[in-house]
Amino acid sequence: MDEVNWTSISEFVFSDVSDQQDLQLLIFAGLLATYLVNIVGNSMLFVLMWANPQLRTPMYFLLSQLALVDMGTVSAILPQALVHMLTQHRAISFTSCMVQLFIWLSMGNMGSYLLAAMAYDRYVAVCNPLRYATVVTWSLCLKMVAGSWVVVLLHALLDTVMAARLRYCGNRLQLFFCDLPPLLLLSCARPITIEMVIFTEGVLVMLTPIAFIVASYVRIGVAVARLRSAQGLRKALVTCGSHLTVLILFYSTATSPYIYPDSSDTKEKDRVAAVFYTAVAPALNPLIYSLRNKDVAAALRRTGRKILAWGQ
């Protein structure tokens, strides 16, 4: 396409969260409730990790970081989506869109890397329980988290800069927040170098934690298969249960848009899937860990009793 046909874009216009206009008020109430559950639940989980000495361990440090990432993910997207639903003004400036894209890419990929670090923690807990304290140390967890942040921030910065350098022929995004795929669909032409870098580097960044998670759970599966006692099997399931639940929830919702075949209702399905992986899944994580984890549940009861004692 000739450069004269390129349009200078100063703002983007989001799609509605759903095409069901008669359900907009109900959808707004549901998203608002989900956002509040996310912020309250993850804040409470983060405070519990640092307020209770029993939970000041490397595993719960990783969990506290996941709580922060979940709050950052939903806060980068939902508040603006809720305002747009109320005002019916769905425009966002070009700069704000790029900022949102950077935060979304950073937080989304960081969640995946934290789940990979937690998978390694669970692998050591199941396969080398006697060496757990010497292998999974605070130093190791800090290095894994710091290294992950460096990788995801550089990845997000690179993709955001490349998205900002594209020329766009339209400004109506087929999503309710700024993400790379709908932005690429609006570009008039994508230089082969930008396309290759986004694809190869993006696939590498996204597949690395997945490969790490799969390798960890293959080793865990082999170790569990060798267990001869029902008690040992139950202990392994308890050790990995919450993490497995979060993994399934995270990846099933995040990858679902790519499973659907191309059809007339694909865009609606993509938006529904986006609600789940940007809002619902992060809100469920603290519930999963607090309800299924005895240590977190015990810490919650202790904190509750302290609050009640202070109030009397």
Score class of each variant (00 low, 15 high):
Trp149Leu: 15
Leu115Val: 11
Val124Cys: 06
Asp121Ser: 11
Cys127Asn: 11
Ala133Gln: 15
Arg131Asp: 15
Leu166Val: 04
Cys141Gly: 02
Trp149Gly: 06
Arg165Lys: 07
Pro129Glu: 13
Gly108Pro: 09
Met107Pro: 02
Ala119Met: 05
Ser139Ile: 06
Leu115Gly: 02
Lys143Ser: 09
Met110Asn: 12
Trp149Glu: 09
Val152Pro: 05
Val124Gly: 04
Trp149Gln: 06
Ser148Glu: 07
Met144Ala: 05
Ala117Thr: 14
Arg122Lys: 05
Leu105Lys: 01
Leu130Glu: 15
Pro129Leu: 12
Val145Asn: 10
Leu114Ile: 15
His155Lys: 01
Met110Cys: 15
Tyr120Arg: 03
Val161Asn: 00
Pro129Phe: 12
Leu130Trp: 10
Met144Lys: 00
Val99Tyr: 08
Val161Lys: 01
Ser106Gln: 05
Lys143Glu: 06
Leu140Val: 09
Met162Trp: 04
Cys141Trp: 00
Leu101Thr: 04
Ala125Asp: 15
Ala119Val: 03
Asp121Phe: 04
Leu114Arg: 00
Ala117Glu: 13
Leu157Pro: 00
Trp138Val: 12
Val151Cys: 11
Val99Cys: 09
Arg131Phe: 05
Ala117Asn: 10
Gln100Leu: 02
Leu158Thr: 09
Gln100Ile: 01
Lys143Arg: 05
Val124Asp: 13
Lys143Phe: 06
Ile103Thr: 12
Asn128Trp: 03
Met144Gly: 01
Leu142Met: 12
Val135Ala: 08
Leu154Ala: 10
